[in-house]
């Protein structure tokens, strides 16, 4: 197996008496979609926070392409190549769709301390943002302020922003949430394409989507990983069926 892009080992985070994430180790290897599933409150978003740096772990390490990033700030990690989307859409509300993508491109280039030249007249940046919006099918909505985009459009814009960062790996927290069946189908196709660019750690509740997309699945329950394997292995795992999949995965 090739060297993992992302490697977590022994990550633990408590909130008071609650162990939200308990001794979690997992890897994300090139070319894969690794899905993280588990019941509500299992600790999935907390784990994403530990990886992105928004939450500090009590113990354990996070490595990105071999480099220990456990103590780095959110912004440093992003510059090193962690591209994450948020469970609740979190964009710049007053900026247009294009403005959000341009900001991400500017951040990617590391050139935010430029005081003179107007960004909106930066043709290459403008064009690059327009191209990325076209890839997610938002090109016709490029000039709309984010606050006026629909929920589904904002989810796509989240992906466009992550794309603009051209990251080493994607961390996607419930990209299908609230998308409806048509939107979900589109997102599934889209994630297939996205994984060609960089591996994806995917938190998702939509089991159909997960089983279609994931190369590997890890199941998180009460902060612990109880099983990791291919879709077929997870479906067949009796412990997983008992605590989480229940009827849903019965043949």
């Amino acid at each position: 197996m090739s060297e993992p892009i992302l490697a977590l080992s022994g990550l633990t985070r408590r909130f008071g008496a609650l162990k939200a994430v308990d001794d979690v180790s997992l890897t994300l290897v090139p070319g894969e979609i690794h899905a993280l599933i588990g019941p509500n409150g299992a600790g999935k978003t907390t784990l994403m926070g530990l990886i992105s740096g928004r939450i500090a772990p009590d113990s354990g390490t996070v490595r990105l392409v071999g480099q220990d990033i456990t103590r780095l700030s959110v912004a440093r990690r992003a510059r090193l190549g962690l591209g994450r989307s948020f469970q609740v859409s979190s964009l710049i509300p007053d900026y247009t769709a294009r403005g959000n993508v341009m900001l991400a491109l500017q951040a990617r280039q590391g050139h935010s301390y430029r005081f003179v030249w107007p960004v909106m007249r930066d043709r290459p940046l403008w064009q690059a943002a327009t191209d990325i919006l076209a890839r997610v099918g938002l090109d016709t909505r490029a000039s709309v302020e984010t606050a006026f985009l629909s929920h589904g459009e904002r989810r796509l814009l989240e992906i466009a922003v992550a794309l603009a960062l051209d990251p080493r790996c994607f961390l996607l927290d419930e990209p299908m949430a609230g998308l409806g069946s048509e939107g979900t189908a589109r997102m599934v196709d889209f994630l297939q394409e996205l994984k060609q660019q960089a591996p994806i750690l995917l938190v998702e509740h939509d089991m159909d989507a997960v089983f279609r997309l994931a190369d590997r699945i890890s199941v998180l329950v009460y902060g612990r990983i109880i099983a990791t394997g291919t879709a077929a292995e997870i479906r067949a795992n009796s412990q997983v069926r008992a605590v989480y999949l229940g009827e849903e995965a019965a043949p």
Partner: peptide
């Protein structure tokens, strides 16, 4: 000039959503 430049774009974005700005590396 500042407002229209990359610096202004970053500064106004941080005002609206500092977590997002950090998540994209600013």
């Amino acid at each position: 000039m500042l407002r229209a430049a990359r610096f202004g774009a970053a500064l106004m974005a941080i005002r609206q959503n500092p977590d997002r700005a950090a998540a994209i590396g600013i």
